[in-house]
Design a binder for these strands. Sequence first.
DNA 1: TTTTAGTACTATGTGTTGCATAGTAGTAAA
DNA 2: TTTACTACTATGCAACACATAGTACTAAAA
Lengths: 116, 116
Amino acid sequence: MKQTINTENTQSQMRKGVLELCTLSVLAIGEAYPTEIIEQLKSSKMMIVEGTLYPLLTRLKNANYLTYRWEESTSGPPRKYYKLTPEGEALLKELENTWDEMVDAVNKLLKENKNK
Amino acid sequence: MKQTINTENTQSQMRKGVLELCTLSVLAIGEAYPTEIIEQLKSSKMMIVEGTLYPLLTRLKNANYLTYRWEESTSGPPRKYYKLTPEGEALLKELENTWDEMVDAVNKLLKENKNK
DNA sequence: TTTTAGTACTATGTGTTGCATAGTAGTAAA
DNA sequence: TTTACTACTATGCAACACATAGTACTAAAA
């Protein structure tokens, strides 16, 4: 019932679906555990927080796009190192296409309407 | 409890927030009623359906980003012609920036991870 | 006149996702 | 023993895209 439209909320809305693509893209380089993924995304100016990433990884794992292995750490609890399955790599390619198509469509629209 | 991840659903998720930007962008050219907006978006390969657009227009109107006027039609019920308020024009500019930043971030990430 | 088709707007409910918040469990230094 | 730090888990909320069904108006067909 808030009915507020602000840039902050819109950023959050725009992230929907895109974070999945970004996470898969990071894992395409090689396996990583959640904190590493967050760091890599942050360095690309793409924000993601723990409360978003952990459920996302679980979803992708349950759908067989990711697997993980435990590894002991000397500085805290053990870590889950995730990596792409072949299905995950295929999904990544699909999502890249979906992304490119959407970007083209929106940019075409924005450009057209600027030359009014 | 479906736990399915497919391209169709991801497209829908990626649209979140973006449709708001696209709708404002169409209205930046001039006033239009819902069916016109849908047509213009469709011609830019950006899909939106009635069940999405009508609530979206109502949200934007309630937040004072849009106004509308009724106009009689000779081929059916009267139409609501929407147009941007000054606040709506300002919001559009903000959302364009948000969009550009996100596109840059994602594309940077995708490109990096392709040269692995 | 009544029915059918087409157009435009309204109302309601569902599923997915991002995010806030709080909690558990492990290591290591104070 | 306490504190700080790291890593993962669990729960609940809000927003939004979308499906679906319904109302209301005009105009042509039966």
